[in-house]
Design a protein around this nucleic acid. Structure first.
Length: 397
DNA sequence: TCTGGGGTCCTAGGACCC
DNA sequence: TCTGGGGTCCTAGGACCC
């Protein structure tokens, strides 16, 4: 579903989301550096960011950089409740909301002008309502296109509001460093830097052919369009998830095949449960591996028929793992993950099981018990004695 | 800085079909 | 015997984002 790109578009982005929720819920944390997460930083408050603490940083380094920081364990249910409340405020503003992650969304407010005032008034009210109703700071960028709105919110952070006027788009965009462009990460920025290109304006002065030869067709064309301010993408409502994954870092420790199988089983168990909970089925099962030297590999298999059955997915994942055994023994394994893709809607089951047992019924029975008594109520025999660790959803920043 | 977890999209080669 | 062009699907890798 999409709507015509009339704009203006708001990009609303919660600031240091997990850390802000912690500061909201515990007044003692306000104004202090807060780090969410133990072994690795899941989120840092702006006070902690000022010391150089960044998301995904190791916990040890973060503590050295910011000895005064309060480190708190993540409370995922609190964050997802806060996210729901914020998205409810978005929905009060306009039905045309495209969620990007747990803490970020585009809102198309074109056509609202007569009812709700100018875009900047709408954005200011949105910020006020999120503050009053949910108690969290949020930054909003306003522009004619999604890309410019997103760049604007990035520039305005934290707790800011920035409107890019129609007649000031290039003046806003061109002085910015190339890293501000959506889709420019370390690799692309590095390639541009070696050519002496540091600003968006310099990118815009290159020809499309030149960018394509430097960066490849996909990235080259993408950057050419963005730097020249061509972003026709409309706000899309009701986008469905295209894949679902779960992974687990293993550290340097050697794992026995039995241990690996137990971890794999736990990952598949968790994933297929989520899959069924969402009423979806998958066709492709991908095994993700990371080795001791931090290189990665994937092995995948596509099934003839879509499935949401734990045993079917597990069998496929086990075969992929078995086939990768020599690779793992050579390279050493530091992470194992499973991703499910080619997701379909769960069709009504028309086929009857030929042997009188229905794997789906067993899955549903197990899911039911778990949702009533918690996921620890039923544990596979192979998992006893192994801790699968907590599951962590999308990072906020 | 010895390094989470969950996603998206793009590219390229090979198999297979017409 | 040597050979076209086009399309789709699958697999694997890579860059990037939050």
């Amino acid at each position: 579903m999409s709507v015509p790109n009339e704009g203006p578009i708001l990009h609303a982005d919660l600031d240091a989301f997990y850390a802000s929720v912690e500061q909201r819920d515990d007044p003692r944390l306000r104004g202090r550096p807060v780090i969410v997460g133990g072994g690795v930083v899941l989120a840092a408050s702006y006070e902690a960011k000022a010391c150089g603490v960044r998301t995904a940083m190791g916990g040890g380094l973060a503590r050295r950089l910011c000895p005064g920081a309060v480190v708190v364990p993540p409370r995922m249910s609190a964050y997802s409740a806060a996210s729901k409340a914020v998205f409810a405020v978005f929905a009060q503003t306009t039905p045309l909301v495209e969620g990007l992650s747990i803490d970020e969304a585009f809102l198309d407010v074109g056509g609202l002008a007569r009812l709700a005032g100018t875009p900047s008034r709408i954005a200011a009210r949105l910020r006020r309502e999120v503050a009053e109703q949910v108690g969290l700071p949020i930054t909003v960028g306003v522009a004619r296109t999604k890309f410019l709105a997103k760049v604007a919110s990035g520039v305005a952070k934290p707790d800011g509001l920035l409107v890019v006027p129609h007649d000031g788009e290039l003046a806003f965009l061109h002085p910015l460093p190339v890293e501000r462009l959506w889709g420019v990460g370390q690799v692309t920025a590095g390639k541009l830097h070696t050519r002496g290109i540091r600003t968006v304006g310099q990118v815009a002065r290159l020809g499309e052919a030149e960018l394509v030869s430097l960066l490849g067709r996909g990235t080259g064309r993408h950057l050419y369009a963005l730097a020249n301010n061509h972003d026709p993408r409309p706000v899309r409502v009701g986008q469905r998830r295209r894949s679902m994954g779960a992974q687990r870092a293993l550290g340097r420790k050697q794992r026995s095949p039995q241990e690996l199988d137990a971890i794999l089983t736990a990952l598949v168990d968790r994933l297929t449960r989520r899959l069924r909970g969402a009423g979806r089925e998958c066709r492709t099962v991908t095994l993700r591996l990371r080795f001791a030297d931090f290189t990665r590999a994937t092995r995948s298999h596509t099934l003839r028929e879509p499935t949401a059955h734990t045993e079917t997915v597990l069998e496929t994942a086990r075969r992929l793992l078995a086939a990768a055994r020599p690779l793992i023994e050579r390279q050493g394994l530091t992470l194992i993950g499973v991703a499910l893709s080619q997701l379909d809607n769960d069709a009504v089951q028309l086929t009857l099981p030929f042997d009188g047992t229905d794997a789906g019924d067993l899955d549903n029975a197990l899911d039911g018990v778990r949702s009533r008594f918690g996921s620890s109520a039923i544990t596979r025999a192979t998992l006893l004695g192994h801790d699968d660790g907590p599951s962590v959803p999308l990072l906020p920043d």
